[in-house]
């Protein structure tokens, strides 16, 4: 077991995979000589050379498109798109190309590529560097989407993504960048498609992912003092969703709150709520509550940012409301 920061865990995963498999390569803006806009690729150029650690011009469609072509031709490229907000420029290559080629080639051509991208939420990055677009990505058949909330998962999910036969978008949280955690010895691969119970509890399930997991845990600690035992389930993979993980937790707690930094409409929370309302219907003792960003732009100024992204207190309030709620309420 080693303790390291989130970004160092990302760097470790890249280093380990580049060393393990000669078909792995890394490309993106500033990834080579500069060592990454946020340091995650520092040292890789020196260790693996400029061909495998490829500095690119500023051309997100091109970067992702090159990764698609390279993956089709036998490499396992890891393309970096500096901020999730910039995925818009690369969306065609991701959605129309990477995600579709296996199906359109009758299963004969796979696209084993990774797009690493950073979510700047919570770091005063503003309306064009702080958005959470995971629901766009989760909506695409053929794309997988993962988001680690700890150094161990940032490493383990990235490694799983690199080894996966399909295109995977790996989202990283800038707000967790400097956060430390234990990273296991050995391979440490975290399987795609499996959620993790971060804190067990019997009264309510709080589903979250990315940096919101930590605010959900803070809320759970507050609630513990009030006699409410919240279970915090870290999704880790948004697509394919760990339906069983969510339903099993709901089965135990019979109440559900979903937390994310993205806005609510058409979001991941709606998907989880639909799962609960469908397959989990018999287990629900209270309405599902979503705690999301309001349907407006991401602010930059800290005071508004605090209002915008779900904070522990808002999550705790939501939990209190569902714990108080009765299924029979409103029916009479």
């Amino acid at each position: 077991m080693a303790t390291m920061k989130y970004w160092q865990a990302v760097q470790l995963a890249l280093k380990e995979e580049l060393a393990r498999d000669p078909s792995v390569c890394v490309l993106g803006e500033d990834v080579g000589r500069a060592g990454g806009a946020f340091g995650a690729t520092a040292g890789l150029l020196g260790a693996f050379g400029a061909e495998r650690v490829r500095d690119t011009p500023i051309c997100e469609a091109g970067i992702v498109g090159v990764a698609v072509g390279a993956a089709m031709a036998g490499l396992r490229p890891v393309a970096e798109v500096m901020f999730m907000d910039f995925l818009g420029l690369a969306m065609d290559q991701l959605v129309n190309q990477a995600a579709k080629l296996r199906h359109m080639s009758a299963g004969r051509i796979g696209v084993p590529m990774v797009v690493r991208t950073i979510c700047g939420a919570g770091r005063q990055t503003g309306p064009q560097h702080g958005q959470s677009f995971e629901a766009w990505l989760g909506h695409v058949p053929g794309l997988k989407v993962v988001w680690g909330s700890t150094p161990a998962d940032a490493r383990g999910l990235l490694k799983a993504a690199i080894r996966d036969a399909d295109p995977v978008v790996v989202i990283e949280s800038l707000s967790l960048w400097g956060q430390s955690g234990d990273v296991p010895e050995g391979d440490g691969v975290v399987p795609i498609g499996r959620a993790a119970v971060r804190r067990a509890g019997r009264d309510v399930t709080v589903v979250a992912y990315g940096s919101a997991v930590h605010r959900a845990l803070a809320a759970a600690r507050t609630l513990e003092g009030e006699g409410i035992e919240a279970e915090v389930l870290d999704l880790r993979t948004l697509n394919p969703l760990d339906e069983d993980g969510v339903l099993e937790s709901l089965h135990r707690t019979r109440r559900l709150v979903v937390v994310h930094d993205a806005v609510g409409p058409c979001g991941t929370g709606a998907e989880i709520a639909a799962l609960a309302a469908g397959k989990g219907y018999r287990d629900l003792d209270a309405p599902v509550v979503r705690v999301t960003a309001p349907f407006t732009l991401v602010p930059f100024v800290p005071a508004l940012e605090q209002l915008y992204f779900p904070q522990a207190e808002r999550i705790a309030d939501a939990v209190r409301s569902v714990v108080r709620a009765r299924r029979s309420e409103g029916r009479s």
Binding site: G65, A67, G69, M72, L75
Partner: peptide
């Protein structure tokens, strides 16, 4: 871009 990637 795919062709560029395949060439790479």
């Amino acid at each position: 871009p795919m062709a560029v990637g395949a060439a790479y």
